[in-house]
Structures are given as structure tokens and as C-alpha cells.
Design a protein around this nucleic acid. Structure first.
Lengths: 211, 211
DNA sequence: GAAAAATGAATGATTGTTCATTCATTGCAA
DNA sequence: TTGCAATGAATGAACAATCATTCATTTTTC
């Protein structure tokens, strides 16, 4: 057996990096980004202090890789969902929206990470760039699908841009609700709020209480 | 002339506190919450280091008072807007939604502050409490108004809770867009996204492109 | 045994807090 | 009004604590 497995003393380089990134996510969720130190990360990973600088050059490097990791995971999730969705435009839109509320993506720990980085985009252009990349592809595809559905369904009075902005904003806002007020909001309630929006917009293509 | 004015060496206690809170808001917007130190706040306020501990017992005390200040300002804004709104239920709803996109409230500096604190609610119960109080009143009133409009307008198929959740989530999400992607989103576009939502929900009460 | 990985104590820089001192203002006395 | 304490706001250097980073040493793998 080669060098791998988290139990082993010496894991592969990539496995250690992943372990540290996961520990960083946990630390940010537990203590907040302000109070996340290399010590809290190392403790979370049950490793020594120096290891952060060994695998990433600096703490900042680790933080950036952590954001990349969460963003990549999100991108993979919606690309996969889109590929697995039914052939109709409406089904694709629904699949895309549902990803935001599936357990793998819509996890309070990860949401805490998203908002931590979003809150610092104004002062850290690197974060802004990485976060913007996340939305670029998603928003473009969602916009195209909405536009297509407007034409297909002859919903002439609708504006695709406003709908796209409103829909992805609603997703983000519901995430915030799940983060700040977890007792008052659930993934399923959040998903249904978005669905209701779609029902109102496209009554011919989205029926209440559908899957 | 008594003791006041920010230029004076000795300002009133309350004026100094307010000056430091404003400096904190600026610092959070400029450097992020992680990189906001008592030094950056003092520099922003053009005062000495020690003054933070003089007027607030600690840095943490200043941060809490800053959140309170922004939250109070927000509350006053929507209470005032509601009081000044027309008598109809629809007008009140619109007034409430418009507050979120008026220049005084929907300012990128203040939005950065909101998201900084939101991102740490999971680790700091005090922030969570203060942020929850912000929403308590607003959401309750919005929910009551939506419920009333559903009855008034005989929109029997609509669910007031989902609509309230979705609408305030959309506002928060559009704020995020304004923060992360200021070139791609404007206050006016954001406001119109929310309005379009209302037009779809309550076509008899909200017409496209209304004030 | 050599190379690589991991450790954890040491280091230096940063940051929050304290405190002796400075300075502007106010009230009082002449 | 003028001069003089008394008050307390503000300062900024000093201090103590925290934190990111380094590195000599140990441990593991091949």
C-alpha cells in the first residue's frame, strides 16, 4: 500500500492539504474568520503548528486555497446536477435551484465560510475574484435557461435579467437565514420559497409542491 | 459655547463614542473585520490608540456598540418609512421594500459591516442576538402586511410565510450582490428586481415600473 | 541509511490594554 | 474681567499577550 490514509502518520501531500483545508472550514465555522489562527486550524486537524507553513507557504495561502476548495466543490455540484437533470428547460432550472439547498452544498458550516469570505471581498480583491468566478458560470447558465423558458412559454412580459438576479439573490438570502436563524429556517422551507417564486413566474411550467 | 464639535480637543462623551463608531464602520469596510485593529480605528478617527479603551471598555465593546448603531439606524429607517407611507397595504409593503435600497441604508460601507457581523453569528451569540432583533420587527410587520394583502386581494393560492421569507431573502441577496459585484448591480436594479417579484405575486396591486 | 514529513519550541512581529502625563475646559475667588 | 485650581478628556509610550513563521530535531518511509 502506498502513502495515503488520514490515520497514517505520513499521508500523501495532497491528502494533508485537503485535511488542513477541511480543518480550516471547521475552524471558520466554529470561531469565525477573525478568530481563526493557525493554532485553531492545527488543533482542528490534530496536527502540529508548523504544518500549515509546510504545505501552504503562509496562513493567507491556506485561506485562499480553502476558498478555492469550497468554490470548486460548489461548481462541481451544480454542473453535475445540470448534467443529470431532465431534458426540459424547466427541469434544468429546477435542478440548478435545488442544488443550493441540497445537504452537500447547503451545509451551515460551508455557508459560514462563504459569508466570511464574501464579507471581506471589499478589502481583498483576491477573494472577490474567486467569488465572482463562482457566480460567473452559474449566473450565465441560469440566465440563458430563463431566457429560453420565457420564449418557449411565451411569457413576454418577463425580464430574464431581473429574474436571474432576483432568483440567485433569493438563494443567497435564504442561506443567510439558515446561517443566522437556523431554528426559524430549514433547507426544505428555503427550497420551497424559491419554488414558489418559480411557480408565480412560470405557472405553466412549475406547479405547486412539485419535486 | 459648551463642549462639543469633533474638531475640539475635548468633545462630549457621546460625540466621541459616535465618532469612534463611525471610524469602526469605515475601518471594517476598508480593511475587513479581520484586519480591523484598534490602531486602524484610531487612525480613521484621527485620535490616539488609548481612546478606544477609554470610551468602550475593550475592542470587543466597541465592535458590539458599532453593530448596535447600524442596527438601530436600520430600524429607525424602516419605522420612519412605514409611518410616512400611504394608507394602503400595498403602499406600505412597497415602502418597506424600498427602504432596503435607499441610499442612506443601502450603502456599500454599511453593507460590508452587516455581512461582517452576519458571517460571525455562528461563533458569537451576541452578534446573532443583535442581528436577530433587527429582523424580528421587520419580518413580523412585513408578514402581517403580506397576509393582509392576500386577504384583501383574494390571492388565495399564496402563502404569506413563503413570500415574506423569499422577499426579505431577496433583499439580503441583492445587498450581497451590491457588495461583491458593485459594477454589475445598482441600487435601482436591485429595487426593480424586488418590485418585479411583487408584480408577479400581486398583479392587481403592483404594476410594472411604478414608483 | 537517506530522504521526506512532521513536530513543537523559539522567535519576532503584531495587537489589545494600561497608565503616567499633557492639555483644554470649567468653576471659583479676588 | 482676570488669575488660579480642579476636573476629566486625550495622549502615546510601555507592557503583556497573541499570533504567524521559522528551524533544529525527531519520526517515518523507502
Amino acid at each position: 500500500m502506498s502513502s495515503s490514509g488520514p490515520g497514517k502518520r505520513t499521508a500523501s501531500k495532497e491528502a494533508r492539504r485537503q485535511q488542513l483545508i477541511q480543518a480550516t472550514i471547521q475552524s471558520i465555522a466554529k470561531y469565525g474568520l477573525s478568530d481563526t489562527t493557525v493554532a485553531t486550524v492545527a488543533k482542528e486537524a490534530k496536527l502540529s503548528q508548523g504544518i500549515v507553513n509546510l504545505h501552504f507557504q503562509s496562513k493567507q495561502g491556506l485561506l485562499i486555497e480553502t476558498l478555492k476548495s469550497v468554490a470548486d466543490e460548489y461548481k462541481e455540484a451544480w454542473e453535475k446536477a445540470l448534467a443529470g437533470a431532465g431534458p426540459s428547460t424547466a427541469e434544468k432550472i429546477e435542478a440548478l435551484v435545488n442544488v443550493d439547498f441540497c445537504p452537500a452544498v447547503c451545509d451551515r458550516t460551508k455557508i459560514a465560510v462563504w459569508f466570511s469570505y464574501w464579507s471581506e471581498t471589499k478589502s481583498r480583491p483576491t477573494y472577490r475574484k474567486l467569488c465572482a468566478e463562482r457566480d460567473r458560470g452559474y449566473d450565465r447558465i441560469l440566465n440563458e435557461l430563463v431566457q429560453a423558458l420565457i420564449i418557449e412559454g411565451k411569457y413576454q412580459s418577463l425580464d430574464a435579467d431581473f429574474i436571474t438576479d432576483g432568483l440567485s439573490a433569493m438563494s443567497a438570502g435564504l442561506w443567510l437565514d439558515l446561517l443566522v436563524n437556523p431554528r426559524g429556517m430549514t433547507r426544505e422551507r428555503a427550497r420551497l420559497s424559491c419554488r414558489m417564486f418559480l411557480c408565480q413566474l412560470f405557472p405553466e411550467h412549475f406547479k405547486a409542491q412539485g419535486v
